[in-house]
Simulated scan of single mutants.
Amino acid sequence: MNHCCYILYSKKLNRYYIGYSSDLDIRLVFHEKSEPRKFTYNASDWKLYYKIDCKSKSQGESIEGHIKRMKSRIYIENLIKYPEITTKLLEKYKDINII
């Protein structure tokens, strides 16, 4: 499995979507074919903005939760500007069970 936390961006909505997946390709198709009542249904121009490769599901979900709790567009945009933020997130949420 290829665990990751990902961020999508819609120019139409000028919004970000933060998620976790163990198979990003399948997840992106899901977002493209999203149903009504799902957040990503509101736009058809979602593009992958940023991806953080993770070592496990728990690490990916923890990083996803961290970014969502920040509730900050600037924080999301700073992930690209300052790669050390991603390094710190991966270190903060590393799994002690992974060798």
Rank of each mutant, 00 (worst) to 15 (best):
M1G: 06
M1W: 02
N2A: 14
H3A: 09
C4R: 10
I7D: 10
I7C: 12
L8H: 12
L8N: 13
L8W: 13
K11M: 08
K11Q: 13
K11L: 12
K12Q: 13
L13P: 11
L13S: 11
L13E: 13
N14Q: 14
R15L: 14
Y16P: 06
Y17F: 11
Y17E: 04
I18R: 10
I18C: 08
Y20P: 00
Y20R: 04
Y20M: 10
Y20S: 02
S22V: 00
S22C: 05
S22R: 02
L24I: 12
L24Q: 08
I26R: 15
R27A: 14
R27C: 13
R27E: 15
H31G: 08
H31I: 02
E32A: 03
K33Y: 07
K33M: 02
S34D: 10
S34R: 00
E35P: 00
R37G: 01
N42Y: 05
N42M: 04
A43Q: 07
K47E: 15
K47Y: 03
L48F: 08
L48S: 14
Y49C: 07
Y49P: 14
Y49T: 08
Y50L: 15
K51N: 01
K51P: 00
K51Q: 14
K51A: 05
I52P: 03
D53C: 05
D53P: 03
C54H: 05
K55M: 05
K55T: 00
K55I: 03
K55Y: 01
K57C: 12
Q59G: 06
G60T: 07
G60S: 12
S62E: 09
I63V: 04
I63N: 02
E64T: 01
G65Q: 11
G65H: 14
H66T: 06
I67E: 04
I67V: 09
K68F: 06
K68Y: 02
R69I: 07
M70Q: 15
K71Q: 10
S72E: 10
R73I: 12
R73W: 07
Y75I: 07
I76Y: 09
I76V: 11
N78F: 06
L79F: 04
I80T: 09
I80C: 09
K81V: 07
K81E: 10
Y82T: 14
P83G: 09
E84A: 09
I85C: 02
T86Y: 01
T87Y: 11
L89A: 07
L90F: 02
E91L: 10
K92D: 01
K94R: 13
K94F: 00
D95W: 00
D95S: 15
I96D: 11
N97W: 09
